[in-house]
């Protein structure tokens, strides 16, 4: 039973990772990030319930807050990019290389 739950959350996590790695649009990648964090939250909540550990649940709350902060920062950066008139797209970010 635990294995099934766990494998789905890890599957979700790697889906998020795939989104971040494969997708070209930055917003989609941001979503992928949030997916990864939420997948971890699900597994953390499940395990906290299993080990009946209150501290883990508090951790989930904090992780959610941190994820939000992350999203805010990500959005700000992407908005900045768009304000410059550049495509919010990976291929636009080729300037720095070598």
């Amino acid at each position: 039973m635990t294995a099934l739950i766990y494998s789905t959350t890890i599957l979700l996590f790697f889906l998020g990772l795939a989104a971040v790695v494969l997708r070209r649009q930055l917003l989609a990648m941001l979503l992928g990030l949030e997916l990864m964090v939420s997948a971890v939250n699900v597994s953390l909540v499940y395990l906290a319930g299993l080990f009946s550990d209150a501290q883990a649940l508090a951790a989930v709350l904090i992780i959610i807050a941190v994820a939000a902060a992350e999203a805010v920062v990500g959005l700000t950066l992407i908005i900045d990019l768009r304000e410059q008139g550049r495509e919010a797209d990976c291929s636009a970010l080729r300037e720095l290389k070598g």
């Binding site: 990772l17 790695v21 494969l22 990648m29 970010l93 080729r94 300037e95 290389k97």
Partner: peptide
């Protein structure tokens, strides 16, 4: 080595994975 660092974000993340 420099050719490797192509500048694309996806490549970086791909290497990371």
């Amino acid at each position: 080595g420099q050719e490797l660092a192509g500048g694309g974000l996806n490549d970086y993340l791909w290497w990371m994975a």
